[in-house]
Design a binder for these strands. Structure first.
Lengths: 353, 353
DNA sequence: ACAACCCGCTAAATCGATTTACCCCGTGAT
DNA sequence: ATCACGGGGTAAATCGATTTAGCGGGTTGT
């Protein structure tokens, strides 16, 4: 039997304004049972036997008393949180931010919210965050440019993850085509000696991109010279890495008339290194970036780059995830979704003079 | 009396792996009551009368059965969500992304998660999102560069909000000092004829910054010439706006040797306009930006700018909010926290030749 | 006349924890 | 012998919804 009875509606936290109104109080006010009110408010099919009159009364009162269903109670009962988790390497980087913008667009439209966490390439965090998010009852995960561990019990969509894992849907760029677009563009401008900058080992795009670049170079009869390649080194995402890689290439004193960087950020660093070495861009050296982050267009000169439709990739990731979440149990799911890149020609490339 | 009994632990959703283990099942396994287990697991003071032996048994079993408290159940009972909401104009913009990085840092450290929403300056969304977030049971809100409506029942911290509202803590830059830093720098380089670009009307920083700039100009005896000022126009956050504003100024054929833009993005557009008009930067015209977003350092030449410590501002916002959330009820809260700017001199400014 | 149904609604179980108010037993003090 | 007290727990209320089984009474069908 009950020991104590609190006086009802004495909220313990200091909310001065009228945010209360539970289902129970609303029902009491209406002289109805909570069950009835719930049925009507949720437009449950079971409410069809309730006359319109009563329904109107209920809805009116709900509006007047400013009834807002308690989200946690509802989640607990229904075992749904309408929340998903997004794991990114770093929020303040153009890449992830653009993907997130797309994710947000679609999720909010569908009534979902999302938690964001950034792991800054720390492997302990990469392990820990998915678990933490699952404890927060997220219904699915999106991992951006992150090689996620397996063993997640919930649907997972990976953007540029590049690991075929059971239970994971991959959204990947068509790297073969992307590399070809860039190399072809340079080749058409007359460039034959092209320098290449390779990505850091930890970036999940590095390997597939590199293979694609090699293939494109060979295919298009462009020399692929080891002495004209360098790899980005270091955790940070600053143009400094591209600057250093380019310096290395320059120091080898091999001649080249074009450079294809791993991404826009490194392309920007490369341009600085080239200028310092007295080479003008694009007159002496043409430079192509990758990604088309916002600052690519902001460069002077504007950066020619292979555009990844990052925002769209975010939207597609969100769509795919929600489809999986709302699919009838263990049904099949897409393993890989390939996205087509686009070459954006700006002012950092020019014909071989 | 009970009508139906489900066979216990037959989860209706298709989770193959072992994620179950409720408090009840754990208690059953241990031949103890849920109450005891809960007390021990939460290290509640009431558990001090329980012998170490039992405590160890409980913790061991919890580990073995991989017990994870159900977040929603716990939230419901405790009326706490450990979640806050962050409202930004646009995720994929350097400004908000940097503030968010700071917010995240601190929140996750303290065991909080956050929802992000972006309103893209749509006033209906600015109205709607705070309500939506409150329905999601967030314990507080951070609004970044957003003139939030009043009437929020939960603690609100505003970063660059610039509206003194009851219940709101404002984090603002010391604009007087910021303007002075920039103008003084240019004046010391010998510039007297300086062009100024003013921000869009919807940006909450625009007015205070503008006043500060005028005051600094007058104070430092730099001419403040209406014909050398222009305002950014348009919703987008692209350098194009700065480009157009600068064109307007150039078209007036008034001579100037330096330009102070509203922010880095517009400074980048300005540089492009100046170059196209045959003016070199910094040899003919020095340019100063504002914010120090990542791409400021990435510019060629590197952009001299007034740095807002955006990441730190995010951390401070999060700290302030958590302090308010965990403060004993209606206690007082900081109304305004002023942040000091810093001048970052790069290569876009040079002495008057 | 009795079953079958429909209408309008409700009781009560449930989701999975937290937390308060005891309870029972043994020991030491009076 | 009785009381007080502390140790080692537990029962049950509670958070705020959702949802199923079913109740009472009137109508219809046969």
């Amino acid at each position: 039997m009950p020991r104590t009875k609190t006086p009802a509606f004495v909220s313990s936290r200091g909310n001065a304004s009228a945010q209360c109104a539970s289902l129970k109080s609303l029902a009491q006010h209406l002289q109805l049972s909570p069950a009835t009110v719930s049925l009507v408010i949720n437009r449950s099919p079971a409410a069809k036997s309730i006359p319109q009159r009563t329904q109107d009364r209920i809805r009116l009162a709900a509006r007047e008393l400013n009834y807002r269903p308690n989200f946690m109670a509802r989640s607990l009962r229904q075992q749904r949180s309408f929340t998903i988790g997004v794991v990114v390497p770093e929020i303040s980087e153009g890449y992830a931010a653009l993907v997130m913008a797309g994710i947000e667009d679609h999720l909010l439209q569908e009534g979902y919210f999302y938690f964001v966490v950034s792991h800054r390439h720390r492997s302990d965090l990469i392990e820990e965050y998915p678990t933490l998010l699952q404890q927060r009852a997220v219904e699915g995960l999106i991992a951006v440019d992150t090689a996620c561990s397996e063993g997640v019990a919930i649907p997972l969509v990976s953007v540029s993850g590049h690991r075929e894992l059971p239970g994971v849907s991959n959204i990947v760029l068509n790297h073969a085509r992307a590399a070809r677009l860039a190399v072809e563009h340079l080749a058409q401008l007359g460039h034959r000696k092209i320098a290449f900058i390779k990505g850091q080992a930890f970036s999940s795009d590095t390997e597939s991109r590199w293979e694609a670049v090699k293939a494109a170079a060979i295919d298009l009869k462009v020399s692929f010279n080891e002495r004209l390649t360098a790899q980005l080194e270091g955790e940070s995402s600053s143009p400094q890495l591209g600057y250093e890689a380019t310096r290395k290439i320059l120091d080898r004193r091999e001649s080249f008339s074009a450079l294809f960087a791993f991404n826009d950020i490194s392309a920007i660093g490369a341009i600085r290194a080239l200028r310092e070495a007295g080479r003008r861009v694009p007159e002496d050296v043409s430079v192509v970036g990758f990604d088309d982050i916002q600052s690519a267009a902001f460069q002077n000169p504007g950066l020619t780059t292979v555009r990844q439709p990052l925002r769209e990739m975010g939207v597609i990731a969100a769509e795919t995830l929600l489809r999986r979440i709302n699919a009838p149990a263990k049904s099949s799911y897409p393993k890989t979704i390939t996205i087509e890149p686009e070459l954006i020609v700006r002012a950092s490339t020019a014909p071989l003079s």
